[in-house]
């Protein structure tokens, strides 16, 4: 009998330890605590070029993360990229004339979407589209433009 209890205790302790480890990985290590997936509402925006923007990239406003990119899709009629982003439910007053930019965090960092609020008092609803967008800056294009301009000045 004592042996049986011992087995039960050891199994229980082992499973508990495993679950604690999993819980630790879920809550402390991963983003599970940050993004309650499926909550919030969806906005879309069209960009001529999204650069290297990835699914799950942050959507920020004034530098604070308010949502994440949910999906990226190519629209074959307009030849533009359609970005769907999920914004946290608490952020429910984004003006309709908000400007969406694709920024890069640092020189080599990841790309993210930065929203600059407009002045409108009409707010975007679930499924709404951000009309004003600024595409990602592609380094090669910038360098090309810079050189072209320099050449124009000197000539």
């Amino acid at each position: 009998m004592a042996k049986r209890q011992n087995v039960e205790l050891m199994v229980g302790a082992f499973v508990a330890l495993g679950l604690v480890a999993l819980f630790f990985l879920a809550m402390k290590v991963s983003n599970l605590s940050l993004s309650a997936g499926g909550e919030g509402y969806v906005l879309t925006a069209r960009f001529t070029n999204v650069g290297s923007l990835k699914v799950r990239a942050p959507v920020t406003m004034a530098g604070v993360r308010i949502g994440r990119v949910e999906s990226l899709r190519f629209d074959k009629t307009t030849y533009m990229a359609v970005v769907t982003m999920r914004v946290d439910a608490g952020i429910d007053a984004i003006p309709e004339d908000t400007f969406a930019n694709i920024f890069t965090s640092g020189l080599l960092g990841e790309q993210y979407i930065g929203l600059e609020p407009g002045g409108s008092t009409d707010y975007l609803q679930d499924g709404g589209e951000i009309a004003h967008t600024q595409s990602a800056l592609v380094l090669e294009q910038m360098i090309g433009q810079f050189l072209f301009k320099k050449a124009g000045e000197s000539g």
Partner: peptide, 11 residues
Amino acid sequence: MQAKIDFAEDV
């Protein structure tokens, strides 16, 4: 760590 490690994807 929390920003980059995804629960569904990684854990």
